[in-house]
């Protein structure tokens, strides 16, 4: 299986731990990753500036993938949502499709709707499969309760197909159990991390993230895991700010990418998985995971 790795801005500019762990784990499970030579922003934070920019930007990304004859892996929830929405809306609206293609033609590109987009959770759960994961891991991690935070855009909106659904167990939870950990539900599981409030009011955004962390701690989770760079940026990178803003010194929980946990189970070194870049106390979890 070969895919084009479309990282998106957040993963490629600051969440290096995600990129490192993706590049380290997926090839071990038989997924080949191609690095793109030409890419642009998907337009999620720019939706408020212009309704049409995301259509053009995403169609451009899909057209680039199509020119290489590959499907896309979009590790960011925002990018995945926007790319899927563009495919869906352009297929429904031929007028929009031809208008966007009119622009792409000038760049020597064409989008026909052939290329598809996948999120790592789909790649791991549907393409690779739980069985392959359980048979390829070097060792099972101990039964530590871990909470998953799938992130809004993996579930919503229901207008077009999303990788996860609120009806029934999450794919992410099944993946957590596959490597030996215990998936622990918590009340804020399907809630927003607050990343998109950051440009308007950083304080409000960090309060939101702090609330999520407190609830995860309350149910006795030992870690929060996600596959969204925005969620981990908020839940992992903003813990110190959350302590200052809320005045609650108990806000401290390891928050890391699922691919980092998977890497540990696959026997990879924590340095290879970029775990020194996590700002939350991941060393606490590493201590417990090491046998």
């Amino acid at each position: 299986m070969k895919f084009l790795l479309y990282l998106g801005c957040t993963t490629a500019t600051k969440q290096y731990g995600y990129e490192l762990s993706l590049r380290a784990t997926l090839p071990l499970l038989g997924v080949e990753l191609e690095h793109p030579k030409d890419m642009n922003c998907c337009g999620v934070p720019m939706k408020g500036i212009s309704k049409f920019y995301p259509y053009y930007a995403c169609a451009r990304i899909m057209a680039l993938a199509e020119s290489q004859g590959l499907d896309i892996i979009a590790p960011c929830n925002g990018c995945h949502l926007n790319l899927t929405e563009t495919i869906y809306k352009l297929k429904l609206n031929p007028l929009l499709m031809s208008a966007v293609n009119e622009l792409l033609k000038e760049e020597g590109l064409k989008y026909t709707g052939k290329a598809m987009v996948y999120h790592p959770v789909e790649i791991l759960h549907d393409k690779i499969g739980i069985e392959k994961i359980t048979s390829s891991i070097k060792r099972k991690l101990p039964e530590i309760p871990v909470s998953s935070h799938p992130g809004c855009h993996l579930i919503r909106p229901t207008e077009f197909p999303r990788p996860e659904t609120r009806d029934g167990p999450l794919k992410l939870d099944r993946l957590i159990e596959a490597i030996g950990l215990k998936a622990r539900d918590y009340p804020e599981k399907y809630e927003c991390c607050g990343a998109a409030i950051l440009p308007y009011s950083p304080e409000a955004a960090i309060k939101t993230a702090a609330f999520r962390i407190k609830r995860a701690l309350a149910v006795g989770s030992k870690a929060i895991t996600s596959l969204c760079p925005y969620c981990i940026d908020m839940l992992d990178g903003k813990q110190d700010a959350a302590k200052t803003i809320t005045g609650d010194q108990n806000i401290s929980i390891p928050a890391l990418y699922y691919t980092q946990l998977l890497g540990l189970a696959l026997g990879l070194d924590e340095k290879e998985l970029g775990m020194s870049l996590n700002m939350s106390p991941v060393e606490v979890l590493l201590e417990e995971v090491k046998v």
Binding site: E19, S50, R60
Partner: peptide, 27 residues
Amino acid sequence: RMELGLPEMPKPKDFEKFKQHVLLVGF
């Protein structure tokens, strides 16, 4: 990125054309 051994982040190849289109679709 470089120190971590990650490849360079790609930019739009024909940037002037890309910028022209971005302006056209609402910027």
